[in-house]
Design a protein around this nucleic acid. Structure first.
Length: 533
RNA sequence: GGGGGUGUAGCUCAGUUGGUUAGAGCGAUCGCCUGUCACGCGAUAGGUCGAGGGUUCGAGUCCCUUCACUCCCGCCA
């Protein structure tokens, strides 16, 4: 019996008996009993283990993924997967109770040129043609609304052929896809907010900072946080102080020059950091440079000789009045420090957003035991494409523009806002949704702004447009990411920790050897030739 | 496509300014002991130091190239 290796599956026959008093072990669950073995045999042998199962140690991903069935026996990930199952059935139950019906939608569907890259599946019966795996059941759920089912949901697999991140599985992931008819934005918010609050209260001990999620407009979010997925646990806020650099008494010429040519200056104020060592500031500056920015200028506000002064390498460039203006604008006080970035709008949004996280971590400002949800609303319908300088849809071409439909000024497309919204929790984008545009004429108009004529729209979205022409109800929905919800609940930083059989960063399944080559016959049937390199 | 980090025994890691035969713990094998419960004790096996090239009397260590994994940027309507 002692020769039996770890992880071997055995069958024991014998009597369960009480342990004698001195051998009772209260540390373990079965510490009061033992089995008096009469007989045992081995049901499943175990080779030498490539990774220890009975251990909390961390192991290289490669080996964990290759032997996922062993990895999954380990306590932490085993519990994560159980949590995932429970969360999903809880959500399903809640949705059912709210009167939503769960439907399946096709996995083999048509490719859409917009958005993410599609996974393509060659058709044997239709040589030269391809199915695509759905990036999301977007069009189907709208068609379900048109079909008269007014509340739909699905724990839907979504497929996107894009590169992975820690919080983004390559290839496939799951969304709680939902759609409702005859609703406005607020109706969707009410359903999802309740659902998420219930789910997070049930499955986590962490405190919800907001049970009523604050709503932040997209433009506000970019100004105050530099991103449309702000971590609201972080108290730091970004301020625009570009104006101050147009003053005559401002002598910080580097920024002044940049501002003259259209650059912006934004800053982050850190409270009571005057006693931080020089290295604190320089490290952040150096870090910013490592991130590809030109650095973060800084000074600390001091109170020398009864007058405010800016102290630091660039402090001397700031007049008393200029300093006052900045303090007024940013609510900064004596003892606070100010980090500044100057550059093109999208560049400094990016670096100040990263700096906000970085500085907060450095100063330990984030309470890890909380969840901070918010809605990001009022997304713009269109944006300018950096490369082509053309007007493109900024999010979802099927979203409903805001305002009185008859009064929308299509000549100023960048000013059109959409009923488009995101949920963000702790800096992680959990979902996006929209009230959909169910009016074909309006859709043609919006598409024409983005450079598509009626014929192109009819070709691309024939199913959709056609359906909307036969009495479509106003409708809208949202699709929270299941994997990310479980990730937050399980307190994991990586989505693979809540995915049973994940692929690695290069979208390979090391256990099943996917993707793999296929044989000549398979290719022949599909009318495919592989170009050898 | 680009940038950073990592790569030494089955696993987790150490390895000094370049210097003898590359070490430890866990695991494995064999044996001993045992009312043990992550048992204990002893012995043994196990290494292309990710790969290739270079510098050097000498490379795990320095240089170049490359591969794998990972994090980030791009990308993800």
């Amino acid at each position: 019996m002692e020769k039996v290796q770890l992880e071997t599956v055995i069958k024991i026959e014998g009597k369960v008996i009480n342990r004698s008093e001195e051998t009772i072990n209260r540390e373990i669950e079965t510490g009061e009993i033992e089995v008096s073995i009469e007989n045992f045999n081995i049901l499943g042998n175990c080779k030498e283990l490539p990774l220890p199962v009975f251990s909390d140690q961390e192991y290289a991903e490669e080996i964990r993924l290759k032997y996922r069935f062993l990895d999954l026996r380990r306590k932490k990930i085993h519990e994560n997967i159980i949590l995932r199952s429970k969360v999903i059935s809880f959500i399903r139950n809640e949705m059912n109770n709210l009167g939503f019906l769960e439907f399946q939608t096709p996995i083999l569907t048509s490719s859409s040129p917009e958005g993410a890259r599609d996974f393509l599946v060659p058709s044997r019966l239709n040589p030269g043609k391809f199915y695509a795996l759905p990036q999301a059941p977007q069009q189907f759920k709208q068609l379900i609304m048109v079909s008269g089912f007014d509340k739909y949901f699905q724990i839907a697999p979504c497929f996107r052929d894009e590169d992975a991140r820690a919080d983004r599985s390559p290839g496939e992931f799951y969304q709680l896809d939902l759609e409702m008819s005859f609703v406005e934005q607020e109706d969707v918010f009410n359903v999802v907010e309740k659902l998420l609050v219930n789910t997070f209260k049930k499955f986590s001990n962490k405190k919800l900072i907001f049970e009523k999620f604050p709503k932040i407009s997209y433009s506000d979010a970019l100004l105050k946080y530099g991103t449309d997925k702000p971590d609201l646990r972080n108290p730091l806020i970004i301020n625009d102080i570009t104006e101050t650099f147009t003053r005559d008494d401002m002598t910080f010429e580097i920024f002044k020059k940049l501002v003259k040519s259209g650059s912006k200056v934004r800053c982050i104020v850190t409270k009571n950091t005057k006693d931080k060592p020089r290295s604190f500031f320089d490290n952040i500056d150096k870090w910013a440079k490592d991130q590809g920015a030109s650095g973060l200028a800084y000074f600390t506000i001091e109170n020398d000789k009864k007058e405010y002064s800016a102290k630091g390498p660039i402090g001397k460039f700031f007049s008393k009045e200029a300093l006052n203006e900045i303090m007024k604008k940013t609510n900064a006080q004596v003892g606070d420090s100010i980090f500044m970035a100057c550059g093109k709008l999208n560049e400094i949004e990016k670096i100040t957003s990263l700096a906000r996280d970085r500085i907060a971590k450095e100063l330990n400002l984030i309470d890890e035991n909380t969840f901070a949800f918010c809605w990001i609303v009022d997304y713009p319908m269109f944006e300018i494409d950096e490369k082509s300088k053309k007007v493109i849809f900024s999010h979802n071409p099927f979203s409903m523009p805001q305002g009185d439909i008859d009064k929308i000024n299509f000549k100023k497309p960048l000013e059109i806002l959409a009923y488009q919204y995101d949920i963000v929790c702790n800096g992680i984008e959990l979902s996006s949704g929209a009230i959909r545009n169910h009016i074909p004429e309006l859709m043609y108009k919006l598409f024409s702004v983005a450079g598509y004529d009626k014929k192109q729209v009819d070709e691309k979205f024939s199913g959709m447009i056609n359906a909307l022409s036969y009495g479509a109800p106003p409708h809208g929905g949202i699709a929270p990411g299941i994997d990310r919800i479980v990730m937050l609940l399980a307190n994991e930083k990586n989505i693979r920790e809540v995915t049973m059989f994940p692929m690695n960063q290069n979208a390979q399944d090391l256990m099943m050897n996917a993707p793999s080559e296929v044989n000549e016959n398979q290719l022949k049937e599909l009318n495919l030739n592989i170009k050898k390199k």
